[in-house]
């Protein structure tokens, strides 16, 4: 496995005795250039923090059924402002230039339309580590399994508290890199408290697929929650909480203002180091 793979970033954090921090931002919001600047801040390239360990770049989609209102709003604006599928490769390159590995999170039709093999090729060429596929389960993933094999890309599938043991095992078998465990039954978005479903699910995955790193996401909003989840997960995934300050800046007519994002990133970076 190549050194840039997303799993390597998770193991490196583990080696230093903490959970990895994975941050999600969509390409194209507040603009393509603005999203590249925000991704750079997320990576800590502006010196404001050590940055996240791994970046998850979201591709805005017209029908994001796994996303709550915050990510929907950012995605809708990105699409209205003209973001295209090919912009995601520039975002991957920007993250790589900032010294961090990148995975892309995308609904399947965008990859299907681009051409699965062509997408895998261009993602690998841009330096991307792999894909998180919220609406592609291994049962339908034949073409992606082949393309990700051909280009050495990680394939991160989701598992949920409702997944049976049999499906967790099957999904872990099909995955490469790590598994995305959804902490709650629901869509993305910050919540005041994470549920106890998450530690139970992580425990189940560990017994069924020992050794496969597990990232936990959905509902993580601050450093305290990141610290709490970091105690049982290999990686903590944060999305909506990072986008909220960008939406506030965009609404205020100052989309270039990244100060709110810096504060949230610093708090989360601290959280996983507690």
């Amino acid at each position: 496995m190549s050194v840039t793979s997303s799993a390597a970033a998770i193991s490196a954090a583990r080696a230093s005795g903490r959970a990895a921090l994975i941050g999600y931002l969509p390409v194209g919001f507040p603009s393509v250039a603005g999203s590249l600047a925000a991704l750079s801040t997320l990576c800590g390239a502006d010196g404001s923090s050590e940055g996240v360990d791994l970046v998850e770049i979201g591709m805005p989609y017209s029908d994001p059924v796994m996303d709550g209102p915050v990510i929907q709003r950012a995605g809708t604006r990105a699409l209205a402002r003209g973001v295209r599928t090919t912009d995601v490769f520039a975002a991957v390159e920007a993250v790589r230039a900032a010294g961090k590995p990148a995975v892309v999170m995308t609904y399947w039709n965008l990859v299907d339309r681009y051409g699965v093999d062509a997408f895998a090729r261009d993602l690998a060429n841009a330096g991307g580590s792999g894909l998180i596929t919220p609406d592609l389960i291994p049962d339908e993933a034949g073409e992606w399994l082949a393309a990700s094999d051909a280009y050495g890309l990680d394939r991160v599938f989701l598992v949920s508290p409702s997944s049976t043991d049999e499906r967790i095992s099957m999904t872990a078998q099909a995955a490469r890199g790590w598994l995305y465990a959804t902490a709650v039954m629901g869509v993305t978005g910050t919540r005041s408290a994470s549920s106890d479903a998450a530690p139970k699910l992580v425990e189940r995955i560990r017994s069924l697929a020992p050794g496969l790193p597990i990232g936990v996401g959905l509902g993580v909003s601050n450093g305290d929650q990141a610290a709490e989840i970091g105690r049982f997960a290999d990686a903590v995934i944060v999305g909506s909480a990072l986008i909220k300050p960008l939406l506030v800046a965009d609404d205020a007519g100052t989309p270039e203002d990244l100060s709110g994002l810096r504060t949230v990133v610093a708090d989360l970076v601290q959280g996983v180091r507690r």
Binding site: P134, L136, I137, L158, S160, S162, S163
Partner: peptide
């Protein structure tokens, strides 16, 4: 049995819904 009409149909859904 997996819900396909030749190449059409199937299940392109979040894993959270598969059990249901």
């Amino acid at each position: 049995p997996s819900g396909h009409f030749d190449i059409f149909g199937g299940r392109y859904v979040p894993e959270a819904l598969v059990a249901a």
